[in-house]
Design a protein around this nucleic acid. Structure first.
Lengths: 239, 239
DNA sequence: CGTTCAATTGAAATGTATCAATGAAGGTGG
DNA sequence: CCACCTTCATTGATACATTTCAATTGAACG
């Protein structure tokens, strides 16, 4: 069964700029009975330096990926940063393909289930099916775009905009990852700490907290701990 | 002629952390007579939004890729940033695979020559040859790692370290891109402006200038306009 | 020889980090 | 069941790195 040829057909795009969100998946792999694995909250799906055995698609739950960077090459504290959050239907482990070793840790933020796709099986499959090859390339390309946008954000946007953009992105990806194509969900439960968000956005946790409080005072969001309600999307996007 | 199977064999790694540099190339494509194209300084190889026709490997010269991000969706000035510099033997256009459109502009910083690899030819070729497929995946993965590291740098490092890291990376990639495996070249000619560097590093051009001056005062580099001589590598890397 | 662009440097303004204190929530063991 | 501990979040005061604004110089070019 040669799957559809339409390139990138399974890529969802944001309403705003037509760019792919990251909840792409190897849809053609759905038909194949790959095994699954359950990961408890706080446990690592894989760690940096481990040999790359598989790629993983999140079935349920949420992960963060954490990169560690030796501070130059010496003794001082190594830089560490959350490089991404991954929700349902998003693929993990792509950064390890180039070295055959994982470049980051993947840690579950809540009890999660992933589908395991061994790389040794995946590549021959992609050679068989053109659309599957194209889809894998598209997913990796989308990951490049995602990382570049993160860099763009870190390089150009002030704290308030970063936090606002994070909330909007989070809400869009929840929508995209959901089975039912619901409208933008207004109620979000953030599965990560303020420190995680700050690390991801290049901010201190106190700054994240302050900006969330400010957005609440301005009436853009409702805030109650990790529960966030988006009141005024335009206010988040525009300003 | 089935090429070698060794995955990632043509990926160079930095001495420091074993991570791949970005001067990877489709070595198996070397044997294929792809056409070339010459691009004058300041001209665009491609622009954001254009349909993706080919990937390009830099034969000689240097490019910058520039991403533009609509500031939310409204009128205010759009964010723009240099997302990468690309030297000899590095591949351009990978971010466009996911949408079939280029996500950024690629502008030549000096008169340059690229080899044109049409995507319509590349994908069937990769289905034919396992090692070529693996190499393309590896290159894309390396690009993900590169973008993630840029994000890490923008999120965690102060200005002085960013500039120092930029100089070290530049020098390593010159070495890697050169035909002869010379030692780390001490003499660099930066083909880009301070504004380009600043945009890439998430700094203002004045800050870049100040940090370069400071590195010179400290004796880490010699500085004369765009000509940089690396005097003390350890000083750049350590502090 | 004026014009333009790139780079350097100074002084002031500002956004964010840092330091510090407090409170709320959740888990554990006495 | 209640102290106790740890983790997470909020908020204030201060310090500091970088931006912003501004002036000057040099190099490239017509």
């Amino acid at each position: 069964m040669e799957p559809s040829i339409d390139p990138g057909a399974s890529l969802r795009r944001t309403a705003r700029d037509g760019a792919p969100t990251l909840n792409v998946r190897l849809s053609d792999a759905d038909a194949i009975p790959f095994p699954t694995r359950t990961v408890e909250r706080g446990d690592a799906l894989y760690c940096a330096g481990e040999p790359l055995r598989s790629l993983y698609t999140v079935q349920s739950g949420c992960f963060k990926t954490v990169a560690t960077y030796p501070s130059a090459d010496d003794d001082s504290a190594p830089h560490t940063q959350v490089t991404g959050f991954h929700f349902a239907n998003e693929t993990l482990g792509l950064d390890g393909v180039c070295t055959n070793r994982h470049e980051s840790d993947a840690v579950a933020l809540e009890p999660s289930v992933v589908r395991i796709m061994p790389v040794g099986i995946l590549e021959p499959l992609c050679r068989e099916y053109a659309s599957m090859q194209h889809e894998l390339l598209a997913i990796m390309s989308a990951e490049i775009v995602r990382a570049s946008r993160l860099a763009l954000m870190l390089g150009t946007m002030p704290a308030r905009e970063r936090v606002a953009a994070f909330l909007l992105d989070f809400s869009e990806r929840l929508e995209a990852g959901a089975a039912s194509p619901a409208e933008h969900p207004a109620e979000l439960i953030l599965p990560m700490t303020r420190a995680d968000i700050g690390s991801y956005l290049g901010l201190e946790l106190e700054t994240v907290s302050r900006m969330l409080s400010k957005l609440q005072r301005e009436g853009a969001i409702g805030l109650n701990g990790r529960q966030v309600r988006i009141v005024d999307r335009a206010m988040l996007a525009h300003h």
